[in-house]
Write a protein that binds this DNA or RNA. Sequence first.
RNA 1: GCCCUCGUAGCUCAACUGGAUAGAGCAACGGACUUCUAAUCCGUAGGUUGGGGGUUCAAGUCCUCCCGAGGGCGCCA
Length: 587
Amino acid sequence: MSLQTRLSSIVGDAFARLGFSERYGDVVPSQRPELAQYQCNGAMAVAAGAERPPRDIAMEVVAIVSSHPDIDRADVAGPGFINLTVTDSALAGWANRVSGDQHLGYPTSEEPETVVVDYAGPNVAKAMHVGHIRATIIGDSLARLFTFAGHRVIRDPHFGDWGFQMGLLIAAIEDEQPELPYFDEQVVEFPAVSPVSLDDLQTIYPEAAGRAREDASFADSAREKTVALQQGHRGYHALWEQMKAVSESSQREDFAALGVNFDLWYGESDVRDRLAPMVDRFRDSELSEVSDGALIVRIEEADDNRELPPLILESSAGGFLYSTFDLATVEMRVQELGADLILYVVDRRQADHFTQVFRVARKAGIAPGDVGLEHIGFGTMNGPDGKPFKTREGGVVRLSDLIQMVVDAAKARLDEAHLAEEYPEPERFEIAAKVGVAALKYGDLVNNRSSDYVFDIDRFSSFEGKTGPYLQYAAVRIKSILRKAADQGLETGEILPAQVMAERQLMIELNHLPEIVQRSIDLRAPNHVAEYAHTVALMFNRFYDACHILSEADPARQASLLAVAEWALRTLETLLELLGISVPERM
RNA sequence: GCCCUCGUAGCUCAACUGGAUAGAGCAACGGACUUCUAAUCCGUAGGUUGGGGGUUCAAGUCCUCCCGAGGGCGCCA
């Protein structure tokens, strides 16, 4: 239980004694910290139905609540707000309980579910670029949040490796180098080394995509090759494997640099054996129909306010498409992984696609009604001009270059501010890497996930104010104190009632973790945790200024302050962990 | 054309889903380093939440109409 739920039940009991539902007793952190620590707005909500002035009801609640030993002050303000402040000794009691708790007061789920988080979505033939960063970072944080909540989380990047883009690449390469063995039906042995590098693919793919838009016969040829690949053409398959290996190795490096891990490394191609049987089932059912030569499923529902395009299972050329892969993947995740909830962390622009897939999955029984399917859409990352982020030359920024940029900026900051000068060079490099990545991740996660946002490299390289490094710095300061305290033989002790405001406010703030984490999970929105981590760091920094721990004369108070600092560190590290940010030992 | 987002301080973003005086950071100005790490802290200034109307005790949040921006609308992912 958290302090907030405890207060809610105290106030709820008071409402119940007055004959109202106890749910009106819900308490939230005060919006006016100078007036109170918590507030309850229930009196105003209940008043309308009770046909009584809200202030009267609030005063009756306050009269009951005031006598509770944990409540220091309870009073009515404005139209009927109930303001609450807890006693310092009650707060200290909570501090001792929560700081000693494994999950800092957050109750781990008693009914763990299997949650599949589908994020990142890199494509074969394309190095990851800035457009992938949001999906990767947000998805990773959501996976960490659900893990923290006690669920069984399966992370899957869901590589885009079985669709039309493969046919385009094969067609372009065959056009360019028809002498390669992959295109000779007689050949059964293929070279061990890829004929194309990642850089080659990066050039070939956009050219081929552009050509297909203008040259219908080239596009048709690419479609035929897609179908041939999907149907098991040996040479194409060998070439495909090599292209996939080439791009996947670079993608794994990017993920490693970001500290992002997956449990599975599946792609569309991993459900390829399910595609034809599944499509055949649709073909034999009433759900599908042939339209313009393609096999489709209509998805309109009675209360739609617009026309929704049908889901295409099989193209007129006989090939499988995006939606087919996703449907088969739902089937695999339900049947093999036992998924209870699948989260798709994908650009908001694909909302219609997921509406199609989810509706068809339900209609066909691929996803039973108790399996959750959710599209976690996010906004586009734009450059300072408000348009999708590009380099000065107009090209797409590679993710690896972006990471290098922020790490270099962090290194430059160390040099220019003469920080960590006496540390060994490898450690300085490690610090720069952690700081740069923290800046990148925090700068993304602190934004509301569903809105577009502006990516400004200067902002990500400033490392001051509300940034990832600010949070790391606060944590590092605590580590430094704890190290020095240990050197002096000091130990943490029982947390005593707060004596100064900065200390009291820090203790109150640290009690908010359970509700904030729950909100982030419920809304699938890490920005609440990001925002909260900043508040915790700020509160700690104020505490740091106000309470000098190592020079404290009273040993009991010193041990108490040390315990508060350690609690703040655990809280900060936990929050940063949820955001995928790690803290150096010193910086 | 139809539909979906969004519009908040000079800039970049929040706002616990309807609560009090709309909060942070950057940029600007002023203050605090013989320091437990100043990548810090304190203060000042900055707002008719795009505009009008409505619902409500209470609206940035809900409804409606304008204005503006972005996005999606059948064989790409």
